[in-house]
Design a protein around this nucleic acid. Structure first.
Length: 435
RNA sequence: GUGGUUGUAGCUCAGUUGGUUAGAGCGUCUGACUGUGGCUCAGAAGGUCGGGGGUUCAAAUCCCCUCAGCCACCCCA
């Protein structure tokens, strides 16, 4: 006998959970389409060299496969495969706006409470082929719209720019490349406060002078950003000014696209993200649920396609973490489990009635109802109990009495109301309840 | 990758200083109730007490090893 079990960090989705999960996915997909994105799917398995080389950290987390001499791997995200697709299929339009909702795999340690798994679904929307910051703003507007539609209230979209962070590193340390260790420390501000950040900075070997400047510089971004003060500080650092300008433009365009200002926060302490980001970066967090990581994360990655092609193609986009979103919704009590999507159960009263029952089922299915037929002539109690447990709203009985009268009996399990009506009136009744 | 913690029925958990045949609630199934769900009552099925080894007359309980889950960090969706 084989032990039934699933691999660590992977899960089965039973119907009540999956139905609710799919409703989230539908809202995401619908919104992507509203903004003019087209669907794309790519293989789970890619050549290993396609997946690697984008970031040292992530390379370690790629599931490596080997088959008959081919070096392969499971995709780690959807952005790298997109870059590959764009480099490979030159006939794609520009701008190319694609969405992609598929699982990805990462070999890190799972933590369900944080919405973190080894197999999880990413919902990506990316815009390839324009350097316009309007594209970045659109991505932010779309993220806001989806999360609002899903019922989230306290989320914050943090906005920064890799260029700005580089400028800060240059200004403070005199070395642009210090941006990564510097940001990693600052990024923890929300969790550990300034005392903690100072300690981290010291551990990373930053001098007292640098540490004082960091705190002062980040202070400019407290609450309401003072753009002109920030500009003044950065006056001799070109890349920083450029970054500041792009953050400002993305911010203003996003507001024009309807993002509430309280939801969008320019934030220098945002440092996360893959190494391939080059311009504006953004992520969504729930300040009330700090243990759940970011719900979404994205940014501009103008250099990535060039790793597959001579062409240098500007690109920006985001990913929504379906599993993070679901985890957060569960914790906030706004995730609904649904045991069944069946609209109506047709009971089996007696075998003689089966021809009429089956004909009715076929008719209702053609009228777009989800219909189940009970398989045995069991006691009605059993059939009703099943419908009740599965939250099927209607049970239809077509017994000898109904057949003799040329009618059907339909009971609403929600209200308990029961009527015996001509079959012709049935679809109207079911429709009215379906809303 | 680092540190911590917990493993008893499908799920959530009791189980006394080691002591007969390991319990409950929920869920599943059956019946009370042969044309009607939710409530109630009665009953049934379901357990290598994570696995292996040790101590003991006796281990779910004590010791060792191991595996798995979970939590925090790291990193991220």
């Amino acid at each position: 006998m084989t032990q039934p079990r699933t691999f660590r960090g992977t899960r089965d989705f039973l119907p009540p959970e999956l139905i609710g999960r799919r409703k989230i996915q539908e809202i995401i997909e619908l919104t992507y389409r509203r903004y003019g994105f087209q669907p794309l799917e790519t293989p789970a398995i890619e050549y290993f060299d396609v997946l690697t080389g984008k970031s040292d950290e992530t390379d370690k987390l790629i599931y490596k496969l080997e088959h008959k001499g081919d070096a392969l791997g499971l995709r780690y995200d959807l952005t790298v495969p997109l870059a590959r697709v764009v480099a490979q299929h030159k006939q794609l339009p520009r701008p190319f706006k694609r969405y992609q909702i598929q699982p990805v795999w990462r070999a890190d340690r799972p933590q369900p409470r944080q919405g973190r798994f080894r197999e999880f679904v990413q919902c990506d929307a990316d815009i390839i082929g324009t350097a316009s910051l309007l594209a970045d703003a659109e991505i932010i507007a779309l993220t806001n719209e989806i999360l609002a539609k899903l019922g989230f209230e306290g989320f914050i979209i943090r906005l920064s720019s890799r260029k700005l962070l580089r400028g800060m590193a240059s200004l403070i340390c005199g070395d642009e490349e210090k941006v990564f260790p510097l940001c990693r420390c600052i990024d923890k501000l929300d969790k550990i406060g300034w005392d903690g950040v100072q300690k981290e900075l010291a551990e990373c070997g930053f001098t007292d002078d640098v540490r004082a400047k960091v705190e002062k510089f980040c202070g400019l971004w407290d609450e309401n950003l003072d753009w002109s003060a920030a500009e003044k500080v950065l006056q001799n650092v070109e890349i920083g000014l450029e970054g500041l300008k792009e953050v400002r433009e993305v911010y203003e365009r996003a507001i024009q696209l309807g993002v509430p200002p309280e939801r969008l926060k320019p934030d220098l302490t945002l440092a996360r993200g893959l190494d391939y980001y080059t311009g504006p970066i953004y992520e969504t967090v729930l300040p009330d649920k700090p243990h759940i990581g970011s719900l979404s994360g994205g940014g501009r990655y103008d250099g990535l396609v060039a790793t597959f092609s001579k062409e240098n193609v500007p690109a920006t986009g985001t990913t929504l973490g379906l599993d993070r979103i679901q985890t957060a919704m569960k914790e906030l009590g706004i995730f609904t489990e649904v045991p069944s999507e069946t609209d109506v159960l047709i009971a089996q009263f007696d075998e003689e009635g089966l021809p009429a029952v089956l004909a009715l089922a076929t008719k209702l299915r053609k009228a777009d109802f989800n219909v189940e037929v009970w398989y045995e002539s069991d006691r009605l109690k059993k059939q009703f109990t099943y419908a009740d447990r599965q939250q099927i709203p209607f049970v239809i009985i077509l017994g000898p009495d109904e057949r003799a009268a040329g009618k059907v009996t339909v009971k609403s399990l929600a209200t308990g109301e029961q009527k015996t009506i001509p079959e012709a009136e049935l679809t109207a009744l079911l429709d009215s309840a379906k809303g």
